[in-house]
Simulated scan of single mutants.
Amino acid sequence: MSEGKRQKTALITGASSGIGYQLAHIFARNHYNLVLVDKKEEKLNEMAEEFPQKFGIFVKNLVKDLSIPTSPVEIFDELQQASIVVDVLVNNAGFGTYGVFAETDLNAELKMLQVNIVTLTHLTKLFLKPMVAQGYGKILNVASVAAFQPGPLMAVYFATKAYVLSFSEAIANELEGSGVTVTALCPGPTATAFQQSAAMEDSKISSVNRMMDTERVARIGYSSLMANKTVVVPGLRNKILAESVRFTPRKLVTKVVKSMHELKKN
């Protein structure tokens, strides 16, 4: 069938919660079949039961720990064997760690590098070639406003998001005219379980009550992906932050970011 008539499929990593969960809802409402990837099997099973009944789509669950290096190939091979064509790849999975780098847990940071950078790159490499071959495809990489500046007390996390942004912009340029587009979604602080998983609930930035909600971030990400935008920063305050660092001395930017991440004083 032609690309216009075949019901398209979106693969979403980190699909069980937060922005990934909201993106899954949006794609489902827009009649995309779904491949949902996460290590939380129970939540994926709930979605696989709910979504087909509610939206009339097909859902395939893949329970994978994306910190395991073999996961991307396993995902790709399973979908190849099932003859499932992925038209949209959403690299949403990611997490952060918090604390002074000299004291933070190395194993956690190595897993973060694997998920935030290596797995994202590996999945993109695997699914991009078939997209180029069919002359159509979309990739949404979830970066962060963290990508625009260094992040003391979250040094590795900020660096991973800088990679995602740079990588996305570069391959977006390479793919011009191919029918495949790449979008980097760069949200600011968002009301998810991120702060809790990063053990930074008591930091100043986590106490800010103006965090964007996940549904709004997902809507902006989806519409920007469909509009073939390369970089999107949801929210006016976040746009100003991302732009202002270009005109501010790097040392000052770093100090400001550190002050935002410091623990609240009792």
Score class of each variant (00 low, 15 high):
E46A: 12
T181Q: 09
P187N: 06
S144Y: 08
I205A: 11
T192D: 08
F148W: 06
G135E: 10
A198C: 09
M47K: 05
Y32D: 01
S83C: 10
K39R: 14
K265M: 13
P72K: 10
S197L: 15
I84N: 12
E74V: 14
S166L: 05
I57V: 09
V256C: 09
Q7I: 15
E3W: 10
L11R: 03
V115C: 06
C186N: 13
D65I: 08
S83K: 15
V256R: 13
G177F: 07
N141T: 08
S206Y: 02
Y222S: 02
T121I: 02
K204D: 07
S224L: 02
I19P: 00
A199H: 14
P130W: 05
F76D: 01
G4Q: 13
V232I: 14
K251H: 11
A93H: 10
L62R: 11
L126S: 05
M131L: 03
N107E: 14
A28H: 06
V85E: 15
A10K: 07
V145H: 05
F58H: 15
T183P: 04
T254G: 04
F27T: 03
N45V: 01
N173S: 12
E3F: 08
L106T: 11
I117K: 00
E50W: 03
K264L: 11
S259E: 14
I26W: 04
N116P: 06
V37L: 03
L185S: 05
R6P: 00
A48S: 15
A159C: 06
I57Q: 08
Y136I: 08
V37E: 01
E46W: 01
E46V: 12
T124Q: 11
V231T: 14
V217N: 01
K138H: 09
G137I: 08
L89V: 08
H261R: 15
V156N: 10
R210A: 00
Q134D: 11
F51A: 00
Q149L: 06
M112N: 04
L128T: 15
V142C: 10
A28D: 01
L44V: 08
K138G: 02
G20H: 10
T214M: 11
A146I: 02
I139A: 03
P234I: 02
L185H: 05
L140H: 04
T230H: 01
V233A: 06
A147I: 04
S244D: 00
T230M: 11
I68Q: 14
V156A: 12
M131W: 03
S71D: 07
S224W: 04
